[in-house]
């Protein structure tokens, strides 16, 4: 399986994603330049973390108009997997691939920390090797990660089991204390209504080795392989 990792000016987690796919997962990966119009036969697209276009105007607001986003929108529409991590989540929301938006953290500080998230739905393309309500340790690193959407959209996401990850404490409680950015309903990750586009603020690609404090992200990538192989 081939992963296409998009590099925007200011992306900085593209190498981490490449490492996770090629070294940990053992699959093929290629960098896709944001000005290109060719996904180079990629099966899975990763919009990586970083600060595309310096976060000018709003995080992700300008990256969404990069030429390659047209092909990525078509890829998503066809039902193929698209993963937006951190800045990639912000870009996916700005592009309308996912509902809602990411706003300035409620405490106004950049947060760089190892956090816990609870798997809310283990039936998805991205989580089928996790247990429901399993607690994962993954890092976050963002200044604008507070997920917001209208109450109606939030209700729809919950009713459709499209909230995939929530910030939780070690016991799995969904509490304000465990919420690193003030996200509505502790939401850390969601999928679109087709279930093929995922956005999340935490970084599974940076939780793929005991060396960096957690391997909980490995099964995120393995889940995609497992589902496609099945």
């Amino acid at each position: 399986m081939k992963f296409g990792i998009v590099t925007f000016p200011g992306s900085n987690c593209d190498y981490d994603a490449y490492h996770a796919v090629t070294e940990i997962l053992g699959e093929e990966a290629t960098y896709l330049w944001h000005k290109d119009h060719d996904l180079q036969g990629s099966d899975v697209i990763i919009l990586p973390g970083g600060f595309s276009y310096g976060d000018y105007l709003r995080a992700g607001a300008i990256a969404r108009f990069s030429p390659i986003m047209q092909e990525i929108a078509a890829h998503a529409k066809s039902g193929a997997p698209v993963i937006g991590i951190c800045n990639g989540f912000q870009i996916a929301c700005e592009a309308g691939l996912l509902p809602g938006a990411l706003m300035r953290n409620s405490h106004l500080q950049f947060v760089s920390a190892q956090v816990r998230i609870r798997v809310e739905n283990s039936g998805t393309l991205f989580t089928n090797l996790y247990e429901t309500h399993e607690i994962l340790r993954v890092p976050v690193a963002h200044g604008e990660g507070r997920y917001v959407a209208s109450p109606e959209v939030l209700d729809d996401l919950e009713n459709d089991a499209r909230v995939i990850f929530r910030y939780a404490d070690a016991k799995g409680n969904i509490s304000a204390d465990a919420n690193p950015n003030g996200s509505e309903r502790n939401i850390a990750g969601i999928v679109n209504d087709g279930g093929n586009v995922l956005g999340m603020m935490p970084h599974p690609e940076r939780a793929c080795s005991p060396l960096v404090g957690s391997s909980d992200g490995v099964r995120f990538f393995e889940s995609i392989l497992a589902r496609v192989a099945a």
Binding site: L57, A61, F65, C93, P99, G100, A101, M103, V148, S150
Partner: peptide, 8 residues
């Protein structure tokens, strides 16, 4: 289209 985010 760009300058304001319609959600926020």
């Amino acid at each position: 289209k760009l300058l304001a985010n319609p959600v926020t």
